[in-house]
Amino acid sequence: MDYFEVFGLPRQLGIDTLALEKAFHDLSRKHHPDYFTRASPSEKTQAVRMTALLNDAYRTLRHPVRRVEYLLSLYGFKPDSSKVPQALLMEVFEINEQLEEVKAGKASVEEADSLRAQIKEKRERFDSQLQQASLEWDELVKRGEPEARLKEQLGRLTEILSESSYIRNLERELE
C-alpha cells in the first residue's frame, strides 16, 4: 500500500492538509495498538504495522516538497546530479562565496541585505514553480493523459526539485 492509498487518495499533489490531518487522526484511532491488546498475535502485528505506516504516510504527504519527492519515487524518478544545470551551480557557488564574506564580517550591511533578498527571491520562485508544476500534474492525472505526457511532467518536477536542497542549505547558512 503506498502513502496515497493509505488515505484513499488519488496520486495527486493538491492535498487538503486539514482533511488529511483529520483522516490521520481517525485512522490512527481505528488502528491504535491499544485496541488490539486482546486480539490475535497477527492482528496485533498488523495494528503496529498500520500505525507505523500511517505515521510515515502522514509525515510525508503533509509536507509539499516531501510529497512531491515521494510521488517521484513511486515512478522511479530521483534527483540526478548530472542534470543539475551549470547556471544553477554557478549561482549557488557565487551566493555561497558572498555568504562567506558576510559571515567573516567582510561585507557591508547593504551587501548582506541584498544577499538575503536574493535568497528569499530564489525561495519564492522555487515555491511558485513547484506549486504550478504540481497543479499541472493534477490536471494531467484528472484528464487521464497518456503515460508519456505524465512522465514528461515528472521530469519537470524532478528538475524543479533539484534546487530544493540548495535553497535549504543557503537559508540554513543565512541563519
Partner: peptide, 30 residues
C-alpha cells in the same frame, strides 16, 4: 563545477596543466 542535488553540495575543482608534458602542475578546490 559539480553539485549533488540530494544534499545541496557544490564543488569546484580546477587543474592547471603543463602544455608540454600534459602533467597537472597545480590543483585547487573550493
Amino acid at each position: 563545477l559539480v553539485g549533488a542535488p540530494e544534499c545541496g553540495d557544490v564543488m569546484k575543482l580546477q587543474i592547471k596543466v603543463n602544455e608540454e608534458s600534459g602533467v597537472i602542475e597545480d590543483a585547487k578546490f573550493k
